[in-house]
Structures are given as structure tokens and as C-alpha cells.
Design a protein around this nucleic acid. Structure first.
Lengths: 213, 213
DNA sequence: TCTTTTCCTGACCGTATGGTCAGCTTGAAG
DNA sequence: CTTCAAGCTGACCATACGGTCAGGAAAAGA
């Protein structure tokens, strides 16, 4: 054989090296930014978490801001992807129900990302202001129209669509952003059963709250 | 007259000086901590906002941590005070309705405080963990019992009281913590009318969501 | 007035941080 | 094997930060 079988554990290909290290750094950065905030995070700590020398970070990401920007935009993409679950639904029960499910799942699986996003917005969105004004604004307008359609069709009560969206974001992201508070009150991390109950509670309260069930 | 009339504008009394400067510093600190996070905030910037030399800050507050701790505990007190609105209510409509009103008002009047609190919790509550485990835990247990009483009395649907509280916190604080996002989507700060609509929307959705109306 | 205490601050210090760079190693191409 | 570019890193640098301190100003008490 002229070409040895690809082995992910052996000395990597050039492409793989870059891809793997960037992913490693981004993962470590997300964690550190979530735990310490942008100002409190240090490149040295991110490097330690990633298991790489600090100078290597600067080889892949020129500045702390550039690394942070990449982390935030990655999160935004996950958010937006989850939002698709709301479309193509016959009504609010399915559409909003699926959206709550998706966002609760993100809060459970990517709490660090959620915290970085929250932190970014709380500090005035210095890095992703343009996303807010374009992508998010457009997305929101579309969903508002969708909700209005459901209202006009008599499938739910005439609630204010904007404030419904805010409530959906708030209720679901709270389980990530304030996870520490919840865990403290709960006496430990939520179990599988408790996560299920959280999801069901949020869905029940909101769907009943908008008169969809 | 042996004692000149007290004049707040003239050279102050000793007591007043301390009180006034501490308040000035705490106010500036809350703003800066909210905008930059603990790690991103600098004593120099807080001093500039307060209009005092940096060394003067260290005269009143020995360390950055001590100043931060004071800011956070002040916010916690406001929170707890607002919580009283929930008690002594004949039922969930009045009790939870008043609580939502109070918390929405705080989000509107003290958004910086809310952000500092959110940031503190998101970072694992390094400073107020003991408050979470004692005061907040006790308060929560009391409100859970109160809600259970309402449920047993048939005044509302049998929702999970813990998750109801989380939703109340999430929905109301969102207007402060994510105020920038809301303002961006809204094309500017919420007007008086829009704040009223926000309050009414949250109340309507939640009270209907728990079967109280 | 004199003394004491509190208040105030410019100048300074040690440290930690983001970032740089010269030079080494390693994979790929011919 | 040789060449070249990509990957890597220890050592270094300038800056900014939290915090200190000696000594002056101002209020309170005697």
C-alpha cells in the first residue's frame, strides 16, 4: 500500500492539526470565558485548560478579542440552528413546544456557551452588536409574524409576540445562566428526572399561559 | 445660635462625608461592575466615574473584592425586600402579581444591580455562596410552602413551585440583564407604555400559565 | 489656640497580563 | 535527500493593574 490507513491517534495530517487545535482552544476558551468573564479570563489559563503553551494560542488566534469573537459567534450559530425547530409546525403547541425542548437541551448541554452569550449581551454586546441588529432582528421579525399567524388563526390567545419570545428566552436560558443558583437550591445538579420535570414545567406553564392548551 | 443650620451643600460634617462618599463610590462601582464584570472593572475607572482619586477609594474600601462584596450584598437586600410583596396576599393572583410588579420595577430602576447579581451567580457565586445557601434557601423554602398552600386550596393549578419561582426570576430579570438585546430589537429603550405592556404581558402569561386566572 | 483624629492624595511598587519574536521541529512536496 | 512552509515555543517586553504609603488638609474637641 502506498498510502497508510488514516489513524487519528498517530502523527496527524496538517489539516487535522489545525482543526483539532483550534477546536481544543475554542473549547477551553468557552469554559474559561464562561467562568471568569472576558475581563477575568487570561490567555494563560485558557492555554493551561487546553494543554498548550500560551504562545501556541497566539499562533492560532492573534488576540484575546479574536478568540472571544470566535467563541461568541459559534454560540450564536447554535442558537440560530435551534430556532429552526419552531418553523414548519402546524401550531403553537408543536412549534413553541419544540423550541422550548431545543433551548432547554442547549441549556443542559452547553451551559458555558449560554453564559458567554449572556455575559456578552449584558456588557452591551460590544462584539456581536451587528449580529443583533441584522440576523437576530430578522429572525425575530419572522417569528413574530409566525406567532401572529397562529393568533389570527385562533390557535392561541392574543399575547404580545415580542414579550412571548423574551419569556421563552428567559425561561430556558435561566437554567444555564443561573444553573449554579438552581443547583445550590436543589442541593446538587439536576437529575435526568428533574431536567424532564423542568422541561415539562416550562412547557406547561408557557403553553397554558398563551392559551394554546 | 451656637449651632449653624445644617446645610448639605456646605462643608459637610464628618458623618456626612463618609456616608456621601461611600454612596458615591458604591454607585459608581455598581455601574462599572455591571458594564465590565468584576475582572474587567478597574479601580481607576470606578474612581473616575465617582469623580474621586483612586487612592481615596482604597481609603474607604481596602480592596476591590471588599467593594464588590458590598455592592453585591446591597443588591441582594433590595431583592429580598421586594420579595415581601408576595406575602400576606389572599391568593396567587395578588401575591404573584405583586411580586412580578415589584421585580419588573427593579429591573427597570436598577438594571445595573441586576446585572452584577447575574454575573456573580453565573461565575459560581464566589462571593455570595453563603447567602445562597442560607438566606435564599430559607426564603425559597418559605415561598414554596406558600405556593403549595395555594395549590392545595385550589387557587391555582398544581405546578411545580420551584420551577414557577425560576420562571418568575427568569422572566422579570431578563428585562434588566438582557435589556440591551431588547432595546436593540425594539429600536430604542422601552417607553412607559411599553414597560406597562411588558409587565402586563408577563403577568398575564404567568398567571394564566399557573391556572390562577 | 493647640491637639487629635479623620480625611485625602500624588507618587510609587511589585506583579500579572497580552502580546512578540527568533529560532527550532515536523510534515509535505518534488 | 532536499527544500519549503506550517507548526511550535521558551524567553522576553511594555503596559496596566491593585494596592501602599508618607505626608498634607481639614474638621472636631479641649
Amino acid at each position: 500500500m502506498s498510502e497508510p490507513a488514516p489513524d487519528t491517534l498517530r502523527p496527524q495530517r496538517r489539516n487535522e492539526i489545525r482543526q483539532q487545535n483550534e477546536a481544543l482552544i475554542l473549547q477551553a476558551a468557552e469554559k474559561v470565558f464562561a467562568e471568569a468573564g472576558f475581563g477575568g479570563a487570561t490567555m494563560q489559563l485558557i492555554a493551561d485548560v487546553a494543554g498548550l503553551p500560551k504562545a501556541n494560542l497566539h499562533y492560532y488566534f492573534a488576540t484575546k478579542e479574536e478568540l472571544y469573537r470566535k467563541v461568541v459567534s459559534n454560540i450564536f450559530d447554535i442558537w440560530l440552528h435551534a430556532a429552526e425547530s419552531m418553523d414548519n409546525a402546524p401550531g403553537p403547541v408543536e412549534g413553541i413546544g419544540a423550541y422550548i425542548d431545543a433551548k432547554m437541551e442547549i441549556s443542559r448541554r452547553h451551559p458555558d456557551g449560554s453564559k458567554v452569550w449572556a455575559s456578552e449581551v449584558m456588557h452591551g454586546a460590544p462584539v456581536i452588536q451587528d449580529y443583533l441588529e441584522t440576523t437576530l432582528r430578522d429572525w425575530t421579525a419572522g417569528r413574530v409574524a409566525l406567532i401572529k399567524g397562529w393568533i389570527d388563526a385562533g390557535q392561541m390567545a392574543p399575547v404580545n409576540p415580542d414579550h412571548l419570545l423574551y419569556m421563552l428566552w428567559a425561561a430556558t436560558q435561566h437554567y444555564a445562566d443561573f444553573g449554579h443558583q438552581i443547583e445550590t437550591l436543589n442541593g446538587g445538579p439536576l437529575t435526568d428526572l428533574q431536567w424532564r420535570e423542568a422541561k415539562d414545567s416550562v412547557k406547561a406553564m408557557i403553553l397554558r399561559g398563551i392559551g394554546a392548551i
